[in-house]
Design a binder for these strands. Sequence first.
DNA 1: GCAAGCCTGACC
DNA 2: GGTCAGGCTTGC
Length: 296
Amino acid sequence: MPELPEVETIRRGLEEHARGRRVAAVEVRHPAVIAGSVEKFVGEVKGRTLQAFERKGKALAVTLAASDGATPLYLLLRLGMTGQFVVASSSAPLLPHTHVRLVLDGGREELRFRDPRRFGRLRCCTRAELDSILGRLGPDAQQIGATQFLATLRARRGAIKNWLMNQQFLAGLGNIYADEALFAARIHPLTPAGQLSMPAARRLYRAMQGLLARAVELQGTSFRDYVDIEGRAGNFLPRLRVYQRSGEPCRRCGTQIRRLLVAGRSSHFCPRCQPRPRRVARMRGPRKAAVVAAGV
DNA sequence: GCAAGCCTGACC
DNA sequence: GGTCAGGCTTGC
């Protein structure tokens, strides 16, 4: 699942392989992955030059320069759950679920968007539209300062796990890195965000920063589908401590990792290293998280 | 049936 | 306005 480290790896790969190259042709093989009109998308992207690559959270925006010096447009990429963006030889066979091809100048290479689940989206937009979309995201998880992190955390009621994954507050973490950050900080996923002690909140901030930096260095986690721009898997998988390890021993204390449902999303944690907070937030009605599986 | 990002909409 | 359930999607 592409989260911040994976998207950053793709951004760097695009800088290396696609910067300054012109889009000679666009083929949309599955219209559902294009936000808005496909005809408009093709017309706007074709002929423009891939100039700059910026990232906020899991969103990747490519500046599309016009050859006549007209105002640039922006290609916004969201990879969803299983999205892949790779550079390929145009003669290489198309893998199934290849939904969009951007043929690069010369026609020998192309960028391909693949996405079996089709949760990902490509959108061509103006700077104003891009700013509006990125503006709905909270600060990037690698950019946010400790002060802002601590301040926004304090005002929240819900579980810290939800807060970490809510892109409105903090952009970039998905299930993998949220679980891993909580483990590294020794915080139970159901701890109400606003009830974290100051030392715990600081631990979480530091754990998150260290985790993201290391994961970017190792080119991300390939749990299932993720590959970088050259089709290579990331190297962070062996560093995972809790994600999808329920039933296996905690690498720190040997206790079995457990799985909880928090707002419908699975959360993996070590019950010993991440003890339940003493004061649990009052949860109304059916909002209680249920232990769905201990072990296996 | 479960996985998960993201959007919509309902609820309080 | 904050919070969360539901739905989309398909390979395992």
